[in-house]
Amino acid sequence: MTDTLPTLSAGRRARREGFWPTLIRRFLKHKLAVTGLIMLTLLALLALFAPLLTPYTFDGQDLSIIGQPQPPSAAHWMGTDQLGRDAFTRVLYGARISLMVGLFSALLATSLGTLIGALSGYYRGWIDTTLMRLTDVVLCIPLLPLIILLSGILRPSVTLLICIIGGLSWMGTARLVRGQFLTLREREFVEASRALGGRDNRVMFRHILPNAIGPIIVSTTLSVGGAIMLESALSFLGLGVQPPTPTWGNLLNYASQWLTAAPWLALFPGLMILLTVLSVNFLGDGLRDAFDPRN
């Protein structure tokens, strides 16, 4: 008996797959999610290497065709605008801002939400009550109009815009993380960690948080899409990132004034938003399935 036990557990260990390999294997089975990941990687590379991919600069003007937008051609794949700027170049450079705002806003929202949710769920009592009432109140204000108001007042730079979007979309994550913490804090390993003298900080972020990482990653991914939508809506209304810096939103704002004369200007930035957010949603869906232990 004493002899067989170690062998058995060793055998089991050899056959057992780790957490991350299982996850990757399950994720790879989700074809749409893999497609989404490839698309996003491609988009990120396009944005990153934009200066190498186009002979034009984003605010460079071709003075010979100024005044009249040109339809797509071999020299200008997505046409040009009224100022003689290459639309393809502007869409590429727009990807930089749009993707950056999306990614960093989502990261900020997740960090804030995780912190607030963790404090609420771990300490409970008055901390929980205060933070959750705050969450309730912020959730009661219609998000888009509030963000419009803030950007109208503050005339934000890209950084400030990230802070506004991220700073107002943490509530979902906070509730999610709080829920996870409320259940996890009753588990034995948390008690063990505390019994060993682990400080609150350590128990919260080294022991409990890793167990809640799945839903957090999923919600971060999905909020990247939400943030990209918000930024483009805001810039579309002329309240987000200001020209001449191109983002997909303010390109559409410009294009809407040229809808009749130059419809191609409106087509491509919108398709890029659609493609990006679609990829993000596929990715999020795949991650959700991969993390879900019931699958």
């Binding site: 939508m229 483009s232 559409l252 809407s256 409106a266 659609l274 949603n281 596929f282």
Partner: peptide, 22 residues
């Protein structure tokens, strides 16, 4: 429905204006 939640509505609005009105 995936396409639906990923479409920026203001862009779709512009496209429909383009088709139906222009």
């Amino acid at each position: 429905s995936f396409l639906g939640i990923s479409t920026p509505v203001f862009w779709l609005a512009l496209m429909l204006q383009l088709l139906f009105s222009v």
